[in-house]
């Protein structure tokens, strides 16, 4: 499959424009910043620590936002028959996917940076390279999950129904971790659990790279890519 930078660039610009005009996609990043601000101002300092606020914001932005940015626009393109027009205009699936993943990653990346000062954390307390790699990677995993949902749904309504349970499970990981030790242990093997553990360790104990976190994120990334490729080759983007 040949990739044309010119076409990827055209899709990239189209997606950037449509993300800013489609509120259903921007709602998660905006909510992430909004909630963190509201919680910081309204909750007692004992509960709303920097680690809690940042963890919450990153979950909303990278996990919930990622899944929504993957599933909704793809389902919308299918629902409105615009994807077919692109596909018949010599744009291939890979060009479309690359061109549409890049703007979403970019937004998740930028919002993850903005969340740090919003949560009131001093900039020098963040291990920037690891923080950005981990959070961006979890954004990518979420976007891939979102695309898989998008491939299996025919319209935005269906995409919403399918993505809601997945979205809740991953976004509410920290709450599950409070239930008991067994659930907390299981949750630590999800990519969202890893991100929360990393943020807590980094801000409360000082973080050093550990094998478990890297292994979990790598396995999730590879699994995300494999499942995505499976769904894509089996159903294509626009299965009718």
């Amino acid at each position: 499959m040949k990739l044309s930078i010119r076409k990827i660039n055209a899709i990239f610009q189209l997606k950037i424009q449509s993300i800013f005009t489609n509120m259903s996609v921007m709602v998660a990043p905006i909510l992430a910043i909004g909630f963190v601000l509201i919680m910081k101002l309204s909750m007692p300092k004992m509960v709303a620590t920097g680690a809690f606020l940042l963890g919450f914001g990153v979950l909303f932005n990278a996990i919930m936002g990622g899944i929504m940015m993957g599933s909704y626009p793809l389902a919308e393109e299918k629902e409105k028959n615009t994807l077919r027009v692109l596909m018949t205009s010599s744009v291939n699936g890979a060009e479309f996917i690359i061109g549409s993943i890049l703007p979403s990653i970019l937004i998740i990346f930028i919002i993850n940076i903005i969340l740090v000062p919003v949560a009131g954390i001093p900039i020098n307390k963040i291990e920037w390279p690891i923080y950005l790699i981990y959070t961006t990677l979890s954004g990518l995993i979420s976007i891939l999950i979102g695309y898989i949902v998008g491939i299996y749904s025919k319209n935005q309504m269906q995409a919403g129904n399918l993505s809601m349970p997945i979205l809740l499970i991953f976004t509410m990981t920290p709450m599950f971790q409070m239930i008991n030790k067994t659930v907390a242990h299981i949750a630590s093997f999800t990519y969202s659990g890893t991100i929360i553990d990393f943020i807590n360790d980094m801000l409360l104990k000082g973080y050093s790279l550990n094998f478990k976190n890297i292994a979990i994120l790598s396995v999730w990334t590879i699994a995300g890519i494999v499942f995505f490729i499976y769904a894509y080759t089996k159903h294509g983007l626009d299965s009718e």
Binding site: Q17, N81, S90
Partner: peptide
């Protein structure tokens, strides 16, 4: 190239942006 009667256009773009997009693809 083919067009089916229910093919969609990007509603949120202006005519200029829409056509420029496809001019870049072509």
């Amino acid at each position: 190239l083919y067009e089916l009667s229910n093919d969609g256009l990007y509603d949120n773009l202006t005519v200029k942006k829409y056509l420029t997009l496809f001019n870049k693809i072509g």
